[in-house]
């Protein structure tokens, strides 16, 4: 519940960013650089260019949430479809899809993301694309496993006996039974996605300055860590809290969606 509350708060702040801040994440006052937390007018201090940290963190939530959710949703759509097709069709189709995914599996996730980002160039869209590529193979595999398990069940055969088309069998009989493990897994990826997106930005491959992205902020405040350690740690704290919250929610989802097998 706490995790849900914090996540909801972050999401609401991100949506209401112009109303809860001064609305100017890009403009700073060179005279008010690196103010500590609690400074009058800058509740969370200012960064190395004198920009208000509160404003930048709230605006950063927008980018971080998008880069956390979008790759998971895209990977869920692509990977889920491929996995269900591979699992349901079996045979050669299955081999083709799964062996292709194995190629992606052979690379460590971060390396793959860095490679994809390096090819696509910096920016929000390429971050999302890179992370989608990273997440798709594992979602394909989870979906394929769940579908293969269900494919041989008598109720699928009964559905085939009823004369329903494969598409409708997948839609009505297969999907309701594979969605639980896949959705739980995907939700656990959201936290990871935020961390990876921040990591890419931190390495200079994701969002570029002056965009207020948490990973990128962490990178630019890195040099100031001896001057204002608490201010410099704030973006990292946000990344940490958000991804922990998402993981806790994912765990809750796992319990809530537990299939009743009777």
């Amino acid at each position: 519940m706490t995790a849900m509350g914090i996540s909801a708060l972050i999401v609401m702040l991100a949506i209401a960013a112009p109303y809860v801040t001064d609305g100017q994440p890009y403009s700073g006052n060179a005279l008010e650089r690196l103010k500590p937390i609690g400074t009058h007018g800058h509740l969370l201090g200012t960064d190395e260019l004198g920009r208000d940290m509160w404003t930048r963190l709230v605006y950063g939530a927008r980018l971080s949430l998008i880069s956390g959710a979008a790759p998971v949703l895209i990977a869920l759509a692509i990977g889920g479809s491929l996995g269900v097709i591979a699992g349901y069709a079996g045979g050669r189709v299955n081999a083709l899809i799964m062996r292709t995914m194995d190629i992606f599996y052979a690379f460590p996730a971060v390396l793959l993301a860095i490679a994809a980002c390096a090819v696509l160039g910096p920016g929000l869209l390429s971050t999302i694309a890179a992370l989608s590529i990273v997440f798709t193979p594992s979602i394909v595999r989870i979906t394929e496993t769940a579908t293969t398990r269900i494919r041989g069940m008598d109720y699928i055969e009964a559905a085939r006996c009823s004369g329903a088309t494969d598409f409708r069998i997948i839609l009505h009989q297969v999907l309701p039974n594979v969605q639980a493990p896949v959705l739980v897994y995907a939700s656990s990826l959201a936290g990871l996605s935020i961390i990876l997106a921040a990591g890419l930005s931190f390495l200079g491959l994701g969002m570029s300055p002056p965009n207020p992205e948490w990973g990128q902020m962490l990178n630019s405040l890195r040099q100031s860590i001896y001057v204002q350690p608490w201010v410099a740690a704030l973006p990292g704290l946000m990344i940490f809290v958000t991804s922990v919250c998402f993981n806790v929610i994912s765990d809750g989802l796992r319990v809530a969606m537990d299939v009743q097998d009777g």
Binding site: M153, D154, Y155, E157, A158, A159, H172, Q173, P176, N177, V259, Q260, D261, G262
Partner: peptide, 9 residues
């Protein structure tokens, strides 16, 4: 009888 009924329906 168990495997032949979809548990989600």
């Amino acid at each position: 009888s168990h495997a032949s009924l979809n548990p989600r329906m």
